[in-house]
C-alpha cells in the first residue's frame, strides 16, 4: 500500500491505495470524481485524459503513486461555478458530442492543445492533435469545430485582457 497525496482541482487530497492502483481509479473510486472515464483499458482511447502538473496525460496509464505530489485537474475542475469553461461551452454550442462518453477526455485534450498553441489552431493541427482521443459517434467534425471556436474565443479573451492591462 502507498500513501498518496496530491492536489486535485485545487483541493488537497490523500488516500491509502494499493501500489498498482491507476490514477484514473484513484480519481473515480477514492475521490468519487467519475467525470474522468475509462473507455478502452488499453491506453488508446483518451477518455481518461486529465492534466498532471499542467500536461495532458492518460490517467489510465499512470499509477496513482506516480502522480503523488502532483497537481491534477480533471473535467470537474474546469467550470467556474455555473459558468462553463470556454471549451465546454463550445462543445455544447457546436454539438461536439453525441453519447458524451469520450467528451471529458476530448475537452481535457482540447484545453491542453489550446494552451500549447497560443498562436491559434487550424483544422489540420486540431485533427493531428486529436490522435490520442477516439470518438465512436460524432465523426469528429463537430469536435474539431468546437475546438477551433474555443481557441478563437480564448485568443480573443486573452487579447482583450492584455489591452485592458495596457
Amino acid at each position: 500500500m502507498s500513501e498518496v497525496s496530491m492536489v486535485v482541482n485545487g483541493r488537497k487530497v490523500s488516500g491509502s491505495v494499493e501500489d498498482r492502483t491507476l490514477l484514473v481509479h484513484f480519481l473515480r473510486e477514492t475521490l468519487g470524481l467519475t467525470g474522468t472515464h475509462v473507455g478502452c483499458d488499453t491506453s488508446q482511447c483518451g477518455a481518461c485524459v486529465v492534466h498532471v502538473d499542467g500536461k495532458a496525460v492518460k490517467s489510465c496509464t499512470m499509477l496513482a503513486a506516480q502522480a503523488s505530489g502532483s497537481e491534477v485537474v480533471t473535467i470537474e475542475g474546469l467550470a467556474d461555478g455555473a459558468d462553463l469553461h470556454p471549451v465546454q461551452a463550445a462543445f455544447k454550442q457546436h454539438h461536439g458530442l453525441q453519447c458524451g462518453f469520450c467528451t471529458p477526455g476530448m475537452i481535457m485534450a482540447a484545453t491542453d492543445m489550446i494552451a500549447r498553441h497560443p498562436e491559434g489552431l487550424d483544422e489540420k493541427t486540431v485533427r493531428d492533435e486529436l490522435e490520442g482521443n477516439i470518438c465512436r459517434c460524432t465523426g469528429y467534425h463537430n469536435i474539431v469545430q468546437a475546438i477551433l471556436a474555443a481557441s478563437k474565443e480564448m485568443g480573443k479573451a486573452k487579447k482583450g485582457k492584455a489591452k485592458k492591462a495596457a
Partner: peptide, 9 residues
C-alpha cells in the same frame, strides 16, 4: 511518437 498525451510522459 504516439499522441500528445503519450509524448508528455
Amino acid at each position: 511518437i504516439g499522441d500528445p498525451h503519450v509524448r508528455h510522459m
